[in-house]
Design a binder for these strands. Sequence first.
DNA 1: TTGAAAGCGCTAACAG
DNA 2: CTGTTAGCGCTTTCAA
Lengths: 361, 361
Amino acid sequence: MVAWAASSALLAGTRITLPLVATLSEIARQAGVSVSVVSRVLTGDPTLRTRDETRHRVLQVAKDLNYTANYAGRALRLARSKALALITPGVSSPLFDDLLSGATDAAEEEDYTLLIGRSDRITQGSDTLRRLAGEGRVDGFVLQRSDDVSDQALESLVANDARFVLVTSRTPGRRGSVILDDVSGAKLATEHLIGLGHTRIALVGGLPSSDLGRRREHGYALALHEAGLRRRENLVRRLGYSPEMATAAIESLVGAVPRPTGVVVANVNGAIGALTALRRLGVDVPGDMSVVAYHDEWVADHTWPPLTTVKMPYYEVGAQAVRSLVAQLRGSRAEDIVVHDPPPKLVLRSSTAPPPSGQSA
Amino acid sequence: MVAWAASSALLAGTRITLPLVATLSEIARQAGVSVSVVSRVLTGDPTLRTRDETRHRVLQVAKDLNYTANYAGRALRLARSKALALITPGVSSPLFDDLLSGATDAAEEEDYTLLIGRSDRITQGSDTLRRLAGEGRVDGFVLQRSDDVSDQALESLVANDARFVLVTSRTPGRRGSVILDDVSGAKLATEHLIGLGHTRIALVGGLPSSDLGRRREHGYALALHEAGLRRRENLVRRLGYSPEMATAAIESLVGAVPRPTGVVVANVNGAIGALTALRRLGVDVPGDMSVVAYHDEWVADHTWPPLTTVKMPYYEVGAQAVRSLVAQLRGSRAEDIVVHDPPPKLVLRSSTAPPPSGQSA
DNA sequence: TTGAAAGCGCTAACAG
DNA sequence: CTGTTAGCGCTTTCAA
């Protein structure tokens, strides 16, 4: 508080003032010691042998002046910023909120500052990433690719650069990622429908170019296989995760013969679009068709009908990602991590039910 | 690309490599000039008189080495980071997405880097803001208060500190804010219902402690007044903006006698909760009751029925806020700005209709 | 147990 | 037209 009081006289005409900041040398002066002692006391240098008396004096003065280390000075000296950036295609999803919380908490533990950037700005505006890093503003990146960037594009960006950890998606040629257990999650969603007696189960999936979409599709196929059900290619759509894409997928799916009685949508937002499309087409949910979504978020409680979902551990993905990144920056070998804990969890609401009578296997 | 090639030999055992960065003096060496010339060429110093030939040589070398200025050095020298932080209660809303886009674009224009922070982390975790600024990581803040922090708490945090601009909300004792034209927006929403013939119109508002809630309520009252309609206190609820609060508000509103035929909800998320509550109570929307929401977002297309909303210029608020902040940092007097352009816009969907027959005025 | 000093990369005042 | 130099705040080696 004290250090933030200000010299408002300098800014006549403005009631608004600017802050004062304490420096090491100011502390040194007031404590009657040298800057190097102050530095070592404040950074807790274990090799420092000092009288308790001086140590306390330094700490006291620092506290009185409300000292915070200037990061430009420190970063310049140490050649690292102690900041990380989380780059994401879209910030505006509750899913991202979880990821962000995990990343923020882990960053705090590791004593890093976390910035957030958006990948739409980044792939467009050429080299924002390189600028951020080149400027030394951040030491590394947690990168959530958007679904429409190709593996090649991603790899050329990320290369074999230790400062990147990929999140939710990975790319064949490169280590350093943390992802969800997509196959278990999608399998759980599919098994839920199977358990209700459905046999003709459709999949509204992501783009086939994405590893993430492929894993979810694999979970779906696995569940069908283990239940001894036939996987029909004409019940699978791979258009992407947006509500609009799901709408299109549903429209074509409703015309399939025989019509599916249940559909797993590989993303909540898509499922919301699916619900809208089905309502418009006069298909009752869950009477005529059951819908289960991969991912959970609060709107699922407010759709009509409320959406049954599979909740995935996004928080942990965020946390693991920054821990993994920090480890990489320290020189550890890059890892590819799948988050299994907590496991996918079915959140039962009202969009799923047994198939219409006479339609079960 | 070249400068990012790396000395992978240093990291035996790891395929992943670290980058190399060019410095001014390296450029100077290769171009055969002094660092100061390089610096002045690259920063575009207008007072610099130099031969075109040397200028081009410098630029060429800089390009070859893929030079980006190290911000630690620059920040240390200039005593400012050229970074701004946008602090928000919740990142996971499409509304915030717009605000963020505006802020990002404006920051880019002003040549600032924009960080995002979350205010829940901040009010809890004591002095994250002060740390960010004290460390010199950012020069200023765009601060979106959460609805539950009091004016006093806010003022004590922000004091008369030129490095803050408040956004969407303001506080009596302090200049430096940019807000929406809440009264026009809420008025427009209310007028829409009036135009349809409604006379008993309820308001599901925000907390009465917030200036923002009061402005929206004022717009509502104004519309009623201008239409010569009585404003009934028993049709106003002030619980907050979450779906849960709106649900509670709706439940008590449905019991009011005479029951309102229309309701304006001062926030989309609340309106989504309201729709759910009305459905559960067996009140048909819009047959028995019309619902119009303040703010627009994509889910409004996917609720049942699709939600009529008033779209507000959030992008511009974000953009104005950073421009205003940058001006303040340059020493301009703090301003209080209301964004009038573009004006609030009614987005007609299906949650509003004339009141049930015989219920009109 | 403490201090002096160098240097991280940059800008800007001043000197040639 | 271009170079020299000081110094921003910090950490760290070396010397005392």
